[in-house]
Design a binder for these strands. Sequence first.
DNA 1: GGATGTGAACGACTTCACAGCT
DNA 2: AGCTGTGAAGTCGTTCACATCC
Lengths: 213, 213
Amino acid sequence: MRTTLQPGLTNRLTKYLRTTQQLIEEGRDAVSSKELGDYTGINPVQVRRDLNAIGFSGTRGVGYQAYDLVEAVRDILGLRQTYNIALVGAGNLGSAIAASTILPKRGFVIHDVFDADTDKIGRTVGNVVVKHIDELAKSVAEAEEIIGIIATPASAAQHVADLMTEANIRVILNYTDVLLHVPSHVDVHRIDPTAQLMHTLYYLTQAEGQEAS
Amino acid sequence: MRTTLQPGLTNRLTKYLRTTQQLIEEGRDAVSSKELGDYTGINPVQVRRDLNAIGFSGTRGVGYQAYDLVEAVRDILGLRQTYNIALVGAGNLGSAIAASTILPKRGFVIHDVFDADTDKIGRTVGNVVVKHIDELAKSVAEAEEIIGIIATPASAAQHVADLMTEANIRVILNYTDVLLHVPSHVDVHRIDPTAQLMHTLYYLTQAEGQEAS
DNA sequence: GGATGTGAACGACTTCACAGCT
DNA sequence: AGCTGTGAAGTCGTTCACATCC
């Protein structure tokens, strides 16, 4: 009986996963709920409740076994498989994304890179040769890609989104500034650094205002 | 009596702000709570409650006046001022960030760009001349910067974070993959595209598993 | 008709407090 | 001593349903 987990829980589990993976890289063996709470901004009690909810136990006085925790969460979230990604845009941003280690470490592989600029076709970005955007549909089908990243100039974003939709891409990561219009079965995620900034700055300026009292 | 808004609310307000601004760019005049809900993933009822909570009213049968809404939210969040940002890392990623329109549109200005590579010093990135990382403390003080962006290779990230902390930076946007250790008065935000991916893919694969029934 | 505004019930998250293991 | 595990109370967010107004 594999019941679907609640949205909030899956969200938090991914955070535990990322921070624990990184603590392991630092050589850590066990992690406490307090630590996970500090790094993720989630209440320690909530952390314990969540890990408990997925049937994972720690040892009192010590914490949770880091490696086991990672495995347990990956199992629960079904993150054992690798996903191929189609990246469109081979400029500065696209090159940076293709070269980054963040995606591969989490089981995502930039399998194809596309661009409309014929000068860029054939160049290598990351480990991948840049293809022309016209080949997107074919490549996406062949590599069974369901995730697309848009790292083009803003002016091309909607067009690329349309191409991706036609090619049966289901999830789009949008690094541009434009609001994409897509069918409801396609999930768009914006990478917007200001979202977090605005939120934080509100509290920062509030705090400053109160320091006078 | 300017009471501090609840965390959840400010978070949601920033989302309404961004999408409304972009709808305005598309020439839209009025927005409905349903639309805002669709684009932000927030329940329309919640949208109405939130706008109500900050004392902003729409017109029934029509929606909310887009321009007025933007102004109202900016007032409430105190986002009238402009913030200068210190960006460290003038490689592909740093260049892309400096050239992007996302930040300036929201009142953030990349005022200084730093790098450790002497070959890059003096080059222009975005509209800014790259300085050596040693000048960070001085520049940050002069421009009264409280926000720093780390767009360096992962190996340099912690060192840069230390420099920023010493220079009195209060908010750090971390584009690298490493877990930064900073004093508790410094806010670190990770730009991690996989966070949203993992969450979405969980539901996508769950749904596929159930299509058979 | 179409959208806002709002009461009421529900569910999720937070927090306190404390028992229990190592 | 330190950290997990958990009951219970309180707060916040979500959703349904429907009245209200343009």
